[in-house]
Computed example of a mutant assay.
Amino acid sequence: MRAWTVLAGSRAPRAAGAIHTDFEKAFIRAGVYSVPDLVELKSEAAIRAAGKLRTEGRDCVMRPCDVCHFLVGK
């Protein structure tokens, strides 16, 4: 697992662009959950089962401790 830092208040496409500029251009959506939820529930599968995985679009503002899985197109 890797971590990239983004400026506070960055929107999801900009956060994806921190990984690779092509990710910002081809951003579709992000699956987002928080580190405290991961600590409490112990796995991403448990987070999904508890309904704490959010699907966010381009307008999503990143918050401290967000964990994101980005879906990008071609």
Rank of each mutant, 00 (worst) to 15 (best):
E56D: 09
I19N: 11
E24Q: 10
K42L: 11
A49L: 07
L41M: 12
G9D: 05
T21H: 07
M62R: 02
A8E: 08
I47V: 12
G73Q: 14
D37S: 15
G57P: 15
I47E: 08
R63C: 00
W4T: 03
A26V: 01
V72P: 12
F27K: 05
A18E: 08
R48F: 06
A50R: 13
C65Y: 08
V32R: 01
K42C: 13
T55F: 15
P64H: 14
V39S: 01
R48P: 11
S10G: 08
A26S: 14
R48L: 09
G31W: 10
R29V: 11
I19T: 09
L38I: 02
K42W: 07
D37W: 09
V32Y: 01
F27Q: 06
R2E: 12
V67R: 01
R58W: 06
R54V: 11
A8K: 04
V39K: 06
A49I: 00
C68A: 15
A12S: 14
G51R: 04
V67K: 00
A18S: 09
A18P: 07
E40N: 10
A3H: 13
D66M: 05
D37V: 14
D66F: 05
E40V: 10
A16E: 00
I28N: 04
H69I: 03
L53C: 04
T21I: 12
T5L: 13
A3D: 13
L71R: 05
G17A: 07
M62H: 01
V39T: 12
K25Y: 06
